[in-house]
Design a protein around this nucleic acid. Structure first.
Ligand code: MN
Ligand code: MN
Ligand code: ZN
Ligand code: ZN
Lengths: 142, 142
DNA sequence: TAATACATTATATTTATTCTAAACTGTTGA
DNA sequence: TCAACAGTTTAGAATAAATATAATGTATTA
């Protein structure tokens, strides 16, 4: 598979040598058919479940941070108690389902350009993110 | 001043008796000419500086949480390592100045209604928040 | 192979947050 | 008046995410 080479490429560009542990992390993060959102705890559990190798927490954190620095992962601040990370690094927005504690991507195309009619002198906008909180629609129709 | 009564009202509605410590917290939070953003650490420091009474961390956390439950304060998830709180509980958006680590309000009127062309079956949108990250505009004009 | 550079890991540390339990305060009613 | 009670404050302990450390392991290079 050419996958392994992609992982090695990503690791090298992140300044990391391609080791067994790091490639395993890449497999979980980037081999998925779809992008996904995760916490470090969840990532460690996924690795444990689908691999026969153990990867220490330090390695997971270090690798995730290296990928973030390089732009291969994004952090989504949602919750003060725990970081969420996103393997979808394209510009996009999110629904956050408060009942299921679940992030759902909204493609950039599905949100009209956000027009902010205010500027801060000496500053320019670097990025704009929308978070729409959603809840069950118990439309008790009369 | 009628302020004290407002505070007592807010405390009572939050299920808390108006004590010296809690009223002091209200003074800092709600007497300000303008609304503001703070971390718990900052709030404790403000109280220490402007009061002759000491308020324990536990009381500050408990009171802030009670006010959040009641909707007198909002939490702004920005940073995985520390919570930011907002005394502006109207619907509004934010600039986040990444260089100065500072939140700036954007009034709802200054952002065109965010139109999301996507729905999740069985769910409805409860709130929509925009965070625009800003950085110095070193427009090196040629 | 030997020297060196880099990685991994278990463990310790840090820090925000939450919990606990004891001391304190204000209210109530005999 | 004052004892009982409910609620409050507090210091300190516990928890848990994140980060740092330092010893051991592995790969690369000369
Ligand atoms: Mn909280
Ligand atoms: Mn981080
Ligand atoms: Zn996403
Ligand atoms: Zn605000």
């Amino acid at each position: 598979m050419a996958y392994a080479e992609q992982y090695i490429e990503k690791l090298r560009k992140s300044g990391l040598r391609p080791t067994k542990q790091r490639i395993k992390i890449c497999e979980v993060l980037f081999d998925a058919e779809n992008t996904f959102h995760f916490t470090i705890k969840e990532l460690v559990k996924i690795i444990e479940n689908q691999a026969n190798i153990k990867v220490s927490l330090a390695t997971v954190y270090n690798t995730v941070h290296a990928f973030m620095r390089k732009g291969y992962l994004k952090e989504i601040p949602l919750n003060a108690s725990q970081s969420y990370y996103d393997t979808n690094v394209t510009h996009h927005h999110h629904f956050f389902d408060e009942e299921e504690n679940r992030l759902i991507d909204i493609h950039q195309d599905d949100v009209d350009e956000v027009n902010i009619k205010r500027t801060i002198p000496g500053k320019k906008i670097k990025s704009v993110e929308v978070i729409a909180k959603i809840v069950s629609d118990n439309q008790s129709q009369k």
